[in-house]
């Protein structure tokens, strides 16, 4: 019996030893008295997830930047966005590794502040990405410029309805950064640039398919001359699509945001004119790039736009666009 136990302990140890051997060699701590010469920088990227299509795309972008700039990264995130404490464990371990910089998208900004202050005290630059961190600590945040993206949606809308007429908006909420920015971007562009177009209504459906559907139906019935409808996120646009098809109003120009299977099918079938997609690969690339620049002491803009793209039935299958879309 004893020998068997020993065998098992030995095998467990072997596994560990193998893993330890496989692990990329930990870099030596940077010496303070001499500027680090051509040493591979290590930059941990801590995201809000690691196995969803969106985050995989962010990871791909981060890895591309790591290759371009010759730095070493790790990419990790909690299994669900609810696991705030697991993300804190990851951030803590990342700080303990004395990295050159940290890229971070907080699941919960408030909970992360004490650790970010610790990073700041150790002189580790922090770069936010995606929704970033609600704090002054990040030197820069790489994210979609939602105001500009929604303005592009407004331009496309006006073009498709023929330059004049009534349009309406369904958004997810007016409390989150994305909700506020997308509505403002769309509305401001219409009001400042297109005097012949009026926004008859802006409603908030919480991103819920059913509520958004009811709201969209009410708006269409109350405004029979409506020519265009903008849904500011995936849940909202699905509501708009439901309303349009339930009321048989295929003449209304529908423009959405992000991807998702239902929206992609609607665009392919022509029911939806097109949508704005964010660029998760760009988000990953730009945050690592910014981290490298921060380490080199370059000054960074507080906000780094990671880009967005218009897509419709004509370019939905282009490799560049398809890479940004998810079912």
């Amino acid at each position: 019996m004893k020998s068997k136990k020993m065998l098992i302990i030995a095998s467990v140890l072997m596994i560990l030893a193998m893993l330890a051997a496989c692990a990329p060699a930990a870099e030596t701590p940077t010496t303070v008295d001499e500027p680090a010469v051509e040493e591979t920088l290590y930059i941990p990227v801590i995201s809000k997830g690691f196995q969803h299509a969106f985050w995989l795309a962010v990871k791909a972008g981060a890895e591309r930047a790591a290759a371009d700039y010759g730095v070493e990264i790790t990419f990790e995130g909690p299994e669900s966005e609810a696991m705030v404490d697991k993300q804190m464990d990851m951030l803590q371990a990342a700080i303990d590794k004395d990295p050159a910089a940290i890229c971070f998208a907080a699941v919960d900004s408030q909970a992360a502040i004490p650790l970010l202050e610790q990073a700041q005290a150790k002189g580790i630059p922090v770069i936010g990405f995606d929704s970033g961190v609600d704090s002054d600590i990040p030197l820069a945040t790489a994210a979609t410029d939602n105001v500009a993206a929604a303005a592009l949606a407004a331009d496309k809308m006006v073009e498709l309805i023929g330059g004049s007429g009534e349009v309406a908006v369904i958004a997810h909420d007016n409390t989150s950064r994305t909700g506020i920015d997308r509505v403002a971007g769309f509305k401001d562009r219409i009001e400042s640039t297109y005097p012949d177009v009026t926004i008859v209504d802006i409603q908030y459906g919480g991103g819920d398919h059913l509520r958004s559907t009811d709201l969209a139906k009410a708006i269409i019935q109350g405004n029979p001359d409506l020519k265009g409808f903008f849904g500011a996120n995936e849940g909202s646009i699905i509501g708009v699509l439901n309303a349009v098809s339930e009321l048989g109003r295929d003449d209304i120009v529908v423009i959405g945001y992000d991807s998702g299977q239902q929206q992609l099918e609607a665009i392919r079938s022509g029911q939806q004119a097109g949508a704005i997609t964010q660029d998760p690969i760009g988000i990953g690339y730009k945050c690592v790039e910014a981290a490298v620049k921060a380490v080199r002491g370059e000054t960074l803009p507080k906000f780094i736009d990671t880009g967005f793209h218009w897509f419709d039935a004509t370019n939905i299958d282009d490799p560049d666009i398809a890479a940004l879309l998810y079912e």
Partner: peptide
């Protein structure tokens, strides 16, 4: 420990 060694998640 695995995290410190940068073993993939």
């Amino acid at each position: 420990g695995l995290r410190i060694l940068s073993v993939p998640q």
